[in-house]
Design a binder for these strands. Sequence first.
RNA 1: GCCCCCAUCGACUAGCGGUCCAGGUCGCGGCCCUUUCAAGGCCGUAGCACGGGUUCGAAUCCCGUUGGGGGCACCA
Length: 414
Amino acid sequence: MAPSPTGFLHIGGVRTFLFNWLFARQQGGENRLRIENTDTTREVAEAVDQIKQSLSWVGIDWDGEPTFQLDRMDDCRRAAEQLVTEGKAYEDDGAIRFRMPDDGVTAWDDVVRGRVEFQNAQLADPVIVRSDGRPIYNFASPLEDVWDGITHVIRGDDHISNTPTQINIIRAVGGDLPTYAHVPNIFGQDGKKLSKRHGATGIDEFRAAGYLPETMLNFLALLGWAPDGETTLMSRDELISRFSLERVSSSPAQFDYAKLDWMNGVYLRELSIEDYTHRLVLWLGENGYDWDAELVARTAPLVQDKIAKLSEYPAFAGFFFGDIEPDPAQLEGGADMLAAAETVLGKIPEFDAESIEAALRGIADGLGLKPRQAFQPIRVAVTGSKISPGLFESIELLGREESLSRIRAAASLA
RNA sequence: GCCCCCAUCGACUAGCGGUCCAGGUCGCGGCCCUUUCAAGGCCGUAGCACGGGUUCGAAUCCCGUUGGGGGCACCA
C-alpha cells in the first residue's frame, strides 16, 4: 500500500488498500506500507499518523515498519547513475531521463484488466531524477518494488499509464516484474469521481458519522468485488478467505450511501448489547457528548433496533439527558389524555413499563381513543418528539418524577 | 488532440455460448405486524447502451458507434 502523505485518507484509497490487505492475508503473504514522499514539498508530517490511524480503525494492518521513499533517495540516485553509465538513461538539463524503447510494445497481463498494451513509440523518455537530485515517483516506485521483493502491485487504475514506464525501468535494472492489478475508481452517486460534494469521503468522516469499522470493511470490499451473486454480509475472516483478485471488477463502482446505511444498521443490530453500549459510549465521547455512561447503557436497548448510525443517537435519545421543548401543535387535542395520565401515573404502585402501558391503555380506552392518537401527546410530552424509542420503556427509564413533571408541563401547553 | 480503460435493474452485482422470457442485495412501491419511528414478514417494480457480425444458438465471442472514466509533469 503506497499512499502519498498529502492529506486525509480517501475512501477510494482505503478500498484499494483493503484489496491489498485481503489478498496478502489470504495468501499468507506480507502487506507492506510504503509512504511515497519523494515530493518532499507536499509532505505533511501528521498525515502519516493519520493514515496509520485510519487504516487501523477499519482493521487493515501491515507487516513491518512503514518505509519512506525519501529514505532511499541515494540508492535511487546511484541506480540512475548506473543506468546512465550503461547508456539506458541520459542527462538532460541537469535531470536524468530514462531511455524508453523506441518501437515495439510494452505489455502486461493485468489481473483485473487482462492484457494491456502500449505502443513504445507513444511513450516519451521520462525524467527519473530531478535536476536537484531527488528521484521521481515513477522511478523510485518500481525500484523499491524490486528491492522489497514486491510480488503483487495492487493499485488504482490511474496508475495504468505509469505501468509501461515502470516495467521498462525494472527490466533495465534486471529485476523481476511484479504482477499488476489495477482496480477501478469509486464514483459518487452522479457517476463522477467521488468528492466532497457527495458527502463524506474520508474514512474519518465515516467514523464520525457513526459507521462501524466492520460495516466499512464489508461495504468497501463489495465495491468492485463479489464472491458470488448471493452473498452480501461477510465478516472480516470470511472476506479474507473468500477474496480473489480475479473476481475484482474492471468497471468503476458508485458509492451508495443508502446501502451503506442499511448495512450499518444490520451490523449495529447484530452487536451484543454490551458491545453496542460500548461503541455508543465511545462514539459519544469522541464526538463531544459528555453524557452519563450509565444512563447511556440503560437506554441502549431501547435504541439498538431503531437507528442505523451511532450519530442518530443524540437526536433520538437526547431527551433522556436534558430538557425538551415540546411543540404545542403536536400536543393538540391531548389535554384530556395528559391530565388523566398525570393522575394515573402518579398513583400506580409499580413504575415499570408493563404497569405504565396497562395504565395508559386503560385511560385511552376510557376516553374512547385509539392507542395511536392517545399515545402521541404523551410521547411528545415526554420525549419532545413524535418519533422516539418505545414510550413505556422510556417513561420507566425517565422515572416517575421527571415523567410527571414533563407531562404536567405539556398539559399546560395543550 | 493523442493514448489507455470501462459499459447487465436507479445503485452494488451474479452471469465466463444453450440450465436466463437474466438471479441476489440496497433503494423504491404495496400489504401485514404495530404506541411513533425503525426492525421483521410477504408481494411487487426495474436491466443485458446501440448497430453490425460469428454461431444451430449470444447478456456472454468479434468489429464499429455512442456514452463514461483515467492518463499525457523535473506530482503521486
